[in-house]
Design a binder for these strands. Structure first.
Ligand code: ZN
Ligand code: ZN
Ligand code: ZN
Ligand code: ZN
Lengths: 161, 161
DNA sequence: CCAGCGGTGATACACTGTAACAAACCCGCG
DNA sequence: CGCGGGTTTGTTACAGTGTATCACCGCTGG
């Protein structure tokens, strides 16, 4: 199981994220194009979950417009490679520096104050969910678990200013 | 914990849903207006999760148009009263005939074949999640857990045609 | 009566995501 | 080298989702 002390403790820096992505793509025979690189940098460069249009705007400069549809395509690619996650409750995306096992359940901890998103996982939760689905006669293909609340850093900051 | 044998076993029929909603609103001193009633009927009338625009279209007739914004307002009200749930991964809504305890976690089982959505809950999952959040130093305010897959009925039907 | 309040209608708009087609690019093969 | 086919990107258009704003209506309490 992962342990996370806070948002920053486990967050891979953007350059590391890019280097890792480059290695993964080379290893899998896929193209890590400039656009995909820039999108990953944009996602990783902010501490919070980014919307596709935010990314498009951030990558656009006077004279060089990046259309949202291009961002979506790059994000689809990055998600297939496990390099970014989509946060369904926010319609937003975060980078992922983990090496998730196939089928591993991920818990997203979304701070409503700072907007940061942390990842966790728990064998307890996964086991309990598996048993519950079994009892319900339901065969899962995919599940999402997202928790909104306050991260430790924000709670402390607000509690002892 | 709830037990669910299949989609239909636990689904309250639309008329019952409306009667219950009416009672709840009267008890709470709130207005169960015709629009809110029609929206609840529309949500409850189909076996699958309904989008707001689907509902608006269903309620509209030649000469009497129901705008999506009205549907959203009614859905907001019904969600506040715990009469419908929003399925974040589908941008859709389902009726709820349960009497959820405040803070009770709900697991949505979404069948990718028939589109039906079942509810379940599990003390195991909730306990495990609580411990995981505690360890992560995260104070939750709200969580969503949605599982996509095949319900028992669909799996059987596809397995033995 | 009148002011206030909640609900509804109507319009406009922002945000999210996809379809379709063309142009550019890459890479192996004759 | 030039060609052909797959992949990536640009561009436009559009569908779907959700919110803001203002006006109107109907009720209720003073
Ligand atoms: Zn991850
Ligand atoms: Zn925080
Ligand atoms: Zn429910
Ligand atoms: Zn089904």
């Amino acid at each position: 199981m992962h342990r996370h002390e806070g948002h920053d403790a486990c967050r891979t820096a953007a350059p590391d994220m890019v280097a890792r992505a480059e290695a993964i793509c080379r290893e899998r025979g896929l193209q890590f194009t400039p656009l995909r690189r820039e999108v990953l940098e944009a996602v990783a460069g902010s501490g919070k979950a980014q919307g596709a249009y935010d990314i498009a705007e951030r990558l656009s400069a006077p004279g060089k417009r990046v259309a949202p549809v291009s961002v979506y395509r790059a994000l689809d690619f990055l998600m297939e490679q496990g390099l970014v996650h989509r946060i369904a409750s926010r319609n937003a995306f975060i980078p992922c520096g983990h090496d998730h096992a196939p089928g591993e359940g991920v818990i997203f901890l979304i701070c409503r104050t700072c907007g940061g998103v942390d990842e966790a996982s728990s064998a307890d939760v996964e086991g309990g969910l598996e048993r519950t689905l079994e009892r319900a006669g339901f065969t899962p293909t995919h599940s999402i678990l997202e928790v909104e609340g306050d991260c430790g850093a924000c709670r402390e900051r607000d509690h002892a200013p």
